Structures are given as C-alpha cells and as structure tokens.
Simulated assay, not measured.
Amino acid sequence: MTQTTPPGWHPDPGHSGIGPAQERWWDGSRWTDQLRIPPATVRRRRIRIGAGVAAGVVLLAAVGGGAYVLGDSSDDRTDTTADAPSDPSGPSGSPRLPGTPDGGGQDGGQGEIPDQQMPQTEDGYATDLASGISIPVPDGWTGQSGPIGAGLTTGEYACPGDESQKCVRGGVFSAPAQALEVEATTAKAAAEGDIETNAEESYGEKIYGGITSHEQLKSEAVTVAGQKGYRVRWKVVTKNGDDGYVESLAFPSPRSAETLVVVRSGFDVNDKAPKLSVLDDITEGIKKASAAAGSGQDT
C-alpha cells in the first residue's frame, strides 16, 4: 500500500467474483464505500428489437410497455484485486455516477460476456446480476436475465407509429441506476428523477406520437427485497395508439447498499394488457439474487 497514490477509481479489492467487476474510490489514503461499475462495462447502444434478445449480451438502456430499448454490453476487463492502487497513472477521476456516451457513432461495444459473469438461471425468475436481484416471471411472460439488467415482457405486437418496430403490452426491466444515467443518491430522488425519462422512452414521439398529458397515480415509499425504496407511477395519454401506465421504482441493491437499482415498468391501457395488480405482484416478488448466481447459461 502506498500513501502517495492519488485519489481515483481502481479495481475493487473486495470484489467477490459475483457479478461484473466494480471499481472502488481510493481517496489517497484509504478505500471508501463508493462503488461503481466501470464506464467501459456500461457501454450503450440503442436499438429496437423484438422479444427475442440474445442471451447474456444485453444491457437495459430504456424500457416501456410499448416499445422497449436495449443495448449491447461488453466487459473487456480482466478481474483484478489489490490491497491498494499502486499505479498513479491508472484510472482516476472525481467520484461520480459515470455517464455512458453513445460511442461517437460506434455500436457502443459488442462482445461476449465471460461465462463466470453470466447469471445462473433460477426457475421462475429473471436475474439482474449487477443489481443483485431476481424478478419473478409471471405465467405467460418471457424473462431475460443478464449481467447488467434483467427484463420481463408479454404481448408482443407491431408498434402503432412504426409497424416495423416491436412493442409489448407489458414490460418490467431493471438495471443499476448508473447504467441508466440516473444521478441520485436516494431511492426517492432516483424514482422521481427517472419517471419522465421512462415515460418518454416508453410512449414517446417516435412510436406513439408523443405524450399529451400525464396523471400521477402513486408517489410512495415501498419495501422491495427487504430494502426501503420508492416508486412513482404515472398514467400517460399518447397521440397515437394506446395510452399507458409507467412506473419507476428505485431501491438500494440487497447485495450492496451503495448501489441504487432502478426498475422501469410500462403497461398498455388495453384489455389485452396485464392488469396493474400484476405489476404490484411482481414488485412484491423481487428478491435478492441467489449467491450461486454467477455462472451458467441463460434461457
């Protein structure tokens, strides 16, 4: 250990090997409690896809009951640990939630996720390994696990504003707050700060012609996976197609209190869409991911 190494982000010496490698902030004399997923791991590439998502290479970027947006993620790093940073020229910067720019016209990075970072399939659940949670998959829904992000969808159909795109009647997706560029330090601030983005990306201009108005249905504290969280739920009115319900739920990861998790949900207002009670059931069923979830293949 050296006391002269300048402050900066460095590989977390306490990384357990479960989930993507994280970086911990070294303040120049000691390790702090601040953790982040390396920005290189949280690359984004916005694409619209149908229900068939390539297992294991998906990072949630945005979600909705209508169109949902996913991005590829890759991890080029080799997991390393150390007692203290020893290379002053290594990764550094001020403590912050990292942004994830769109890569200057590049795809944002494609690659294979090492097997040891693939979540192990757990019957009836979709696992978000980075967030440390498993989300129950209702009967008739499709669940997708991932190293960064997890999702559930049901009721695929052609989007009203662009029939070449695929929409879903109901969608529930999770990711670490920093992967969604939600800059907040509390669950309440994260949920309140994310709901408008969630609404726009779920039922916005390109697919539904835009949102003409919204009504707030819920803004309340809620316990999720044993953690004190917060949710905000809106009903949005669109120009084209169905209106929708959107919800942003935020809570500390049950695996790491320093990591905020955001769960975005969107349900069409339509007789063919799931009832809102299903969303409440899903929220109540979210749990801490199994400690064994660190290997295996997704389905």
Rank of each mutant, 00 (worst) to 15 (best):
T4K: 05
G8V: 12
H15M: 05
H15I: 06
G17D: 08
G19W: 02
R24M: 09
W26S: 13
G28C: 10
D33F: 02
I37M: 07
P38Q: 08
R48T: 10
A51F: 02
V57W: 03
V58R: 08
L59A: 14
G64V: 10
V69N: 11
G71W: 01
G71P: 01
R77L: 15
T80W: 04
A82R: 13
D83S: 14
S86W: 06
S86K: 02
G90I: 06
G93K: 10
R96S: 15
G99M: 10
P101S: 12
G103D: 10
G104W: 12
Q106N: 13
T121G: 02
E122R: 13
A130W: 05
S131Y: 03
I133K: 02
P136F: 01
P138A: 05
G140M: 07
T142V: 14
G143H: 10
G146Q: 02
P147H: 05
A150C: 09
A158P: 07
A158C: 01
G161N: 08
D162F: 08
E163L: 02
Q178L: 03
A187D: 05
E192G: 04
D194H: 14
A199T: 08
S202H: 06
H214W: 13
E215H: 10
T223N: 13
V224P: 01
G226T: 07
Y230E: 01
R233Y: 04
V237R: 11
D242E: 12
Y245H: 15
Y245D: 01
Y245M: 05
A250M: 07
V261K: 02
V263I: 14
S265G: 09
D280H: 03
E284Y: 00
I286C: 02
G296F: 08
T299A: 13
